[in-house]
Design a binder for these strands. Structure first.
Lengths: 220, 220
DNA sequence: GTCTATAAATAGATAGAC
DNA sequence: GTCTATCTATTTATAGAC
């Protein structure tokens, strides 16, 4: 592989190089997995010799770990509910589910590397996936599950285990992203904008869990 | 790794050994990926020396390819709609979606190896995932999409792009399986039987796409 | 059909000059 | 901070005896 980042090939500040190597490693790990990526490839992509890598990281594992630790390299895991806080406040069900799905879909599209890295990490049994799961996924289930429970108490949603609903909904858009990134990059099976997808998924889910008497709020 | 299959460590018939190696390789590839699995590990698991592998397969790539080609090694991709043919015939919507989901969930559970192998294959860009996609996934979208279209013409389902519905539904149970196999083996987030999961997913989806006037057929 | 021994290639890691 | 050269271990693959 050629250089991934433009470099002047001149001496670089320590932290800068370290961060660059970290980013490049993350990109390559996401493409070929940890075991499938050689330190030589990382070095070539950065335009330096292998030795430079081992000056910054005592071994390959530490390089991997630094992707987890180092802030500059870590994924900006912003609160996915921050952007739809007002919808939650207003109990705008469609706004909540649509916003969440669209948010995720756009995120996945912009950062397909991260999704791939997570999959590789999960398959390889590395810590990265576990940490992400413990911190992020658990939070989403708790938060969205609590919202659903509240709406059930309001009588707006029918009685279903909230976590099953969360599982079903996340499944829709995560699987959609996985399809686009992994198996069907040309979108031969289904070509649809993120907005449309988020809309349809939210619509299906809400109609699926709303109470018969209540009316689905929709911006349609 | 220790021997995966019980062996007598005696001489084995050519085809038998070939098939055994193929199965073992498939298992190990599913756990650690193609690059992450050494021929030595495969040999050890089979209780033979590495040389035996290269007597049967000219190189590691051919071993991988044989998983695709060789019938004995290939996954028994039975028609997922065969078992619910009567439900389809009778237009028993709940039966169709419930049966399909339960079928898939049970299948994934029994053959987690296959799911993992597919993921590794897709991530590594190998043919295995592409062939599976072209043959199997495309068929499911066509078939289930056609069923949904028919039910829309019957006035039973509302007007939504059928493939979006298929994507949403497959997403539910595939993501559920992926969760159980990859991230949440102890099912800390959500512990639920396949029957319950299939039931809830089918219920959510059907309520989500049924026409207001029609009534959801449910075995509940 | 299986083994031991070994070649050839690759990957991870280090030493020391600049 | 970077390089070249080199070392060691691992991995793929082959040769030839049984």
């Amino acid at each position: 592989m050629d250089k991934f980042f433009e470099t002047t090939n001149t001496r670089m500040a320590g932290d800068e190089r370290r961060e660059q190597l970290c980013k490049i490693a993350m990109h390559l790990f996401s493409e070929r997995g940890f075991r499938g990526t050689t330190t030589k490839e990382i070095a070539n992509a950065a335009g330096v010799s292998e030795a430079v890598i081992f000056k910054h990281f005592s071994n390959k594992d530490e390089l991997y770990a630094s992707i987890l630790d180092h802030k500059a390299c870590s994924h900006p895991l912003s609160d996915p509910f921050a952007e739809i806080a007002d919808k939650i406040e207003q109990k705008d069900d469609f706004g909540v589910f649509y916003g969440m799905a669209l948010n995720a879909l756009n995120h996945h599209k912009d950062d397909a590397d991260f999704l791939r890295l997570m999959l590789h990490s999960a398959l390889e049994g590395h810590d990265l996936a576990r940490v992400f799961f413990d911190n992020f996924i658990t939070y989403i289930y708790d938060f969205l599950g609590a919202y659903i429970r509240r709406r059930q108490e309001d009588g707006a949603f029918r009685e279903v285990e909230p976590r099953v609903v969360v599982r079903a909904f996340i499944g829709m858009f995560v699987h959609h992203s996985l399809n686009n990134i992994l198996w069907d990059k040309e979108q031969k099976l289904l070509k649809i904008s993120n907005e449309e997808a988020a809309h349809e998924f939210a619509e299906i889910l809400l109609r699926g869990i709303k109470n018969k008497k209540a009316k689905v709020k929709s911006k349609k």
